[in-house]
């Protein structure tokens, strides 16, 4: 699924990518989502906070995979066949683990969307700044 395929919505509308972790659903602005990949294997990063589930290589780049269940109060997800949403942010890529296959919805601009992740603010807040827990 590619970004240019996802984006629709005429003027006055905005498209979001919806993905699920545990019992909860999160939304991301569709333009932030570069692609969705199946996870073949994920590699732990010792020393990283627990919300960094690991990292995986994707076309020569290493993408950190974020487990939102460690940040938000969510019942422990099973991640039986997890997907990873690859996000473009601050000239970097990070990934969000999803238990479900993400889908896209379009709303009018004036609708306030709950559980929307502002990716820039997320990146800045949870970016690991020193050794130790990332939210510092």
């Amino acid at each position: 699924m590619r970004k240019d395929e996802m984006r629709d919505g005429g003027s006055g509308e905005k498209t979001y990518c919806v993905f699920g972790v545990g019992e909860r659903e999160f939304l991301l602005a569709a333009e932030d989502v570069r692609e969705v990949v199946d996870i073949a294997r994920i590699f732990p990063i010792p020393g990283a906070p627990d919300y960094v589930y690991g990292a995986l290589p994707l076309r020569g780049k290493i993408i950190p995979a974020v487990d939102l269940s460690k940040i938000y109060p969510i019942e422990k997800p099973s991640y039986a066949s997890p997907k990873l949403l690859i996000i473009d942010v601050e000239s970097e890529n990070i990934g969000f683990l999803s238990e479900t296959s993400p889908f896209f919805v379009t709303f009018d601009d004036d609708i306030v969307v709950d559980d929307l992740i502002d990716i820039k603010s997320f990146f800045e807040t949870y970016r690991i700044k020193t050794m130790g827990y990332g939210k510092n």
């Binding site: 020393g47 995986l56 290493i62 950190p64 601050e90 949870y126 700044k129 020193t130 050794m131 990332g134």
Partner: peptide
């Protein structure tokens, strides 16, 4: 490769490589 900026605080790592068989 340089460490992803999301992880750059992990100063004990000066980079990341991918092995021939795809291991990080």
């Amino acid at each position: 490769k340089p460490v992803n900026r999301f992880l750059e605080g992990l100063s004990i790592y000066s980079g990341i490589t991918i092995s021939g068989d795809g291991l990080v």
